[in-house]
Nucleic acid binder design. Sequence first.
DNA 1: GTGAAAGCGCTAACAG
DNA 2: CTGTTAGCGCTTTCAC
Lengths: 321, 321
Amino acid sequence: MATIKDVANLAGCSVATVSRAINNNGYVKAKTRLLVEEAIAELNYQPNEAARTLYKRKSKLIGLLLPDISNPFFTLIARGVEDVALTHGYQVLIGNSDNDIKKAQNYLSTFVSHNCTGMISTAFNENIIEATLTEHHIPFVFIDRINNEHSGVSTNHFKGGQLQAEIVREGKGKKILILHESLSIDTFAQRVQGIQHVLNQYKIDYKMLEATCLDNAEKFVDFIRQHNIDSIICSNDLLAINILGTVQRYKFKVPSEIQIIGYDNIPFSEMTHPQITTIDQSAYHLGEVAVSQLLGLKVDHLGIDNESLTLTVKHRGSTRK
Amino acid sequence: MATIKDVANLAGCSVATVSRAINNNGYVKAKTRLLVEEAIAELNYQPNEAARTLYKRKSKLIGLLLPDISNPFFTLIARGVEDVALTHGYQVLIGNSDNDIKKAQNYLSTFVSHNCTGMISTAFNENIIEATLTEHHIPFVFIDRINNEHSGVSTNHFKGGQLQAEIVREGKGKKILILHESLSIDTFAQRVQGIQHVLNQYKIDYKMLEATCLDNAEKFVDFIRQHNIDSIICSNDLLAINILGTVQRYKFKVPSEIQIIGYDNIPFSEMTHPQITTIDQSAYHLGEVAVSQLLGLKVDHLGIDNESLTLTVKHRGSTRK
DNA sequence: GTGAAAGCGCTAACAG
DNA sequence: CTGTTAGCGCTTTCAC
């Protein structure tokens, strides 16, 4: 690896001049700059980020901590983050917390030790994360999952739940099943509250079940039959797709006998038959907004404002109407 | 951020001693070590990776360059890489090339400037990647997509294609459609060759179509009808899932009228109805093996050997038999 | 066992 | 406009 010194030697100037030329910072005679550029090309020189980071006490790295990129919803966020980070010269360090606060903390501290410029993460119920981060004076923005004390980039999950409930109501759902992920995660709890709010309002009967129950399909289907479930509202598309396959396997007609609604609008929700009705929260965009906010970018050109963080209902074949 | 100096001051020793204590390298009196550990805890000290990297000329970072983590197959690889990297104290820098050699090169050079310990990437047809990497003396291992001159961690794609063809043959396919991704990517070209090899051997008729044709479903279905296609072999599960939804939307019965077979065994392939028959190449495991190889780890405990890189047929509902 | 000191490659005063 | 130089925080000889 060529160093800045090699470049300086070859260009016949000092390292300071090379540094100035590289960083476009301070005066450099046009001719000298040319010499430097030639030397750089010749040596195939690339600045050593570690040295820069050491001096600046800040790396060109952004820490991104997500529950699990196996869920396409988070993958979408990651791509959004990555794409804008890249155009601004940042790389992203990804971590999967698997919703485990211990794992999360581990990632956080390695992000810190890498002098990350900032971090993007889903919020946890515990406030340890914020504590650590503010203690280290690291800028961070929460994404998707935020918490009461710290704002971030997120859609309104309560409202999203309401939208889901409205859809099953329009589809004449009489006996609803709310199939949810762990309610210890605020996001899901809020969506469920939104659903309940609407359902109660219209006095529509419902049952609740946590996703883990799917391990036993037989038992799950028994439950459906026993309670005459005619509509299933899922915490996310992953669940919805899973359920769709399951009930179809047991010969239920979707949506005529059972309608299903998901959440997230992941690409796969459009590939099933019938396609899954869902709530789009434009994950990719969330990612874009989060980095932009983190890096303090002017975000007008991205069309980023509160309005852009809206939910869109995707009416598709898995629900009646 | 506390530095090693702060720790030394608090512990009443020199930075050298602290360093030795941290790295378990050289003699440190038990009592001194205790003092140091207390100071570290008290100050919440974490070593600055940039400084370490600068001195060692090697960071605790692994560069991972994949075509697109939106494809669950690559997500699986990424998780495999991440999980073992983590247990060995490494972080992973992820990049999506979108199969664009320019983007790939950009990522590669940023990986270099971050002093990555090594890199894992899918191979490209051009040999620029290897050239760059060997020039910089950076260890790398190709994954999934390898090329002739450089080995790596990959299953046998030709054989995988053969397996796919065998399955449609067993399902009495008479008129096959090979729906493939760009053949400029070796991996897909090899699978197609494997398919053709078997099909020709049994004198089974087939057509070929590139995935891009799916943009127009109507036209695609016309093609199916016109050629009396009764079996579709897809380059990957993404395509297979997509196609399954499409043909079902046009009232074809799967698998009785059309059987479909995918490749990769991504989690979603099990969620559709019918579930998709596919070839499993244990992506997660590929990721594990790749890092292990990169870091020169003893891999016995992972059960890693050539035998473990085998293909498994997942017989499911989307094919006849 | 421990400390002093050099140096990894870079940037930013500062002086000229 | 350009060069000299002092660190950024860490690891590792080399003395003691």
